[in-house]
Amino acid sequence: MAKSTPTRLRVLKTFKLYIGGAFPRTESGRFLQEHNPKGQLVANFCRASRKDLRNSVVAARKAQPGWAGRTPFNRAQILYRMAEVLESRRESFESALAERAGIKSADAQAEVDAAIDRLVWYAGWADKFVQIMGTTNPVASPHFNITSPEPTGVVTAFAPRSAPLLGLITAIAPVIVSGNALVLVVENEHPSIAIDLAEVFHCSDLPGGVVNILTGLREELVPHAAKHMDIDAIATFDATDEERRLIALEAAESVKRVHNFESPAKHDWAQASAQSPYNILPFVEFKTAWHPIESGAAMGAKY
């Protein structure tokens, strides 16, 4: 392949946001810069504002019922499709992790491997977690009594500060697999990877608005997310004490579910311990139905 001429200036991509299946700039017009470990500028990216958060929540709210209404099997297919598309672009992610984040080539490959595998792993849970986590309850009345988990609605997650690709998959997959819509806020050293990932989602049959990705400053967005009345749950990774306090206080007003995750140590990200069907649980609500049945006692049964 011909090398570019020495005088050519490289075109530096501005990474935009991912809201409602589109890639808008932040409405605020603000941007931040991403550098590699050598201190070189590698990307400009958007600094999302509270209005971008609001727009994302509107998009998520709109998309959520349709996503939850898909069959679990179909959600599994789409998560698997996300893995397929990520696999097809693995070289691009490997080089992005190496060039932008300064991750060693072997480690970058391992992170992409783990990210793809984790998507496939959670895809498998889509049509299984309800069976395993739902229950049939013994009751002292002529009712068939069942409890099953349903998606809680719109979830806002504050992404891990480490593992620029795998951390995102770890945050996203257990939230959306049950039928929630997600607004993911990314503040880490290399948020451009998150928008690369959004491009993968965008061509993976994932309906627009199911995953929305905002890059920016947590400090700025945490209070507005915590106060927002149309967000049903908040997940954080690596939250500071102040973030935990603020979220706990403000989330009470709309009775949001709040779950704080801790990132694993660097080399544990790819381990099985970093994924669990129990990570689906903080973002579901358990619904119980009492279905009347013919009286057992009248039929001579002992109950």
């Binding site: 106060k227 927002h228 009345m229 149309d230 007003e253 709309s254």
Partner: peptide, 9 residues
């Protein structure tokens, strides 16, 4: 209130 509201209310 300073809170983004929800039409569910």
């Amino acid at each position: 209130t300073g809170r983004y509201h929800s039409d569910r209310y």
